[in-house]
């Protein structure tokens, strides 16, 4: 009996410990996610990215900390008013972290969509000389992200945004692009209804989709 109780106590301790470390992980993630919501300047996003990188050091097997660190850096890059080199430094670092996430979780629609988003960032930093080369690369990423998960609203929204840019450039009807944006908004709503309130999985992008939607009208 004594043997058993020691075993049970040991098991309970282990599960308590893992629970504790899970709780610490989730707590740290929530804190940074909260920070990301209120972040405004590139510096704010840089700090958030640092926060996620610290979590990644602690839980090297999780893809989410690297994913969010990458996302925070893309946001920093998009908001940077600095020189091309500064913007590129953000995107280059974002790419590194996202590639790390992709290694941990291959064929993950969210990660592939983020890779496309980074490419979009690089493109927008110098559209004249990068447009031709990178628009194809970005489309490729978004196409793959949609193939991996047709329910991923972020992938569909960004695919729509690229299509919209092309349609505007060539003076074509934006029907297909706007259809994609509407589809993504429906998926965003579905996501809100089905995902748990405090999920750590990506839920961002609805506001962006609403903004793009405006240029459709």
């Amino acid at each position: 009996m004594k043997k058993y109780s020691i075993f049970i106590i040991a098991m309970m301790l282990i599960s308590l410990m893992t629970q504790a470390s899970n709780e610490a992980y989730e707590k740290a993630m929530r804190k940074e996610l909260q920070q990301m919501k209120v972040a405004k300047s590139p510096d704010d996003f840089k700090k958030v990215a640092n926060g996620f990188s610290r979590i990644s050091e602690m839980v090297p097997e999780e893809w989410l900390p690297d994913y969010y660190a990458g996302l925070a850096l893309v946001n920093a890059g998009f908001r940077s008013q600095g020189r091309l080199e500064e913007k590129d430094a953000f995107f280059t670092q974002a790419k590194k972290l996202t590639d790390k996430a992709a290694e941990k979780s291959p064929n993950n629609s969210e990660i592939v969509a983020l890779q496309g988003y980074i490419t979009m960032g690089e493109l927008s930093a110098d559209p004249n000389s990068r447009g031709q080369h990178l628009s194809g690369v970005a489309m490729q990423f978004f196409g793959k992200a949609v193939d991996l998960n047709r329910q991923n609203p972020r992938a569909i929204m960004m695919l729509g945004q690229m299509e919209l840019g092309m349609a505007q450039f060539f003076g074509q009807e934006p029907g297909k692009a706007c259809g994609l944006i509407s589809a993504s908004l429906k998926l965003f709503e579905k996501e809100e209804n089905t995902k748990e309130e405090d999920t750590l999985l990506p839920t961002w992008g609805k506001e962006m989709a609403l903004q793009i939607k405006e240029s459709c009208q």
């Binding site: 740290a28 700090k47 640092n50 610290r54 050091e57 602690m58």
Partner: peptide
């Protein structure tokens, strides 16, 4: 600015 400072093995 923006240096990440942390205690190794902790959050």
């Amino acid at each position: 600015p923006g240096v990440n400072i942390f205690l190794k093995g902790t959050y």
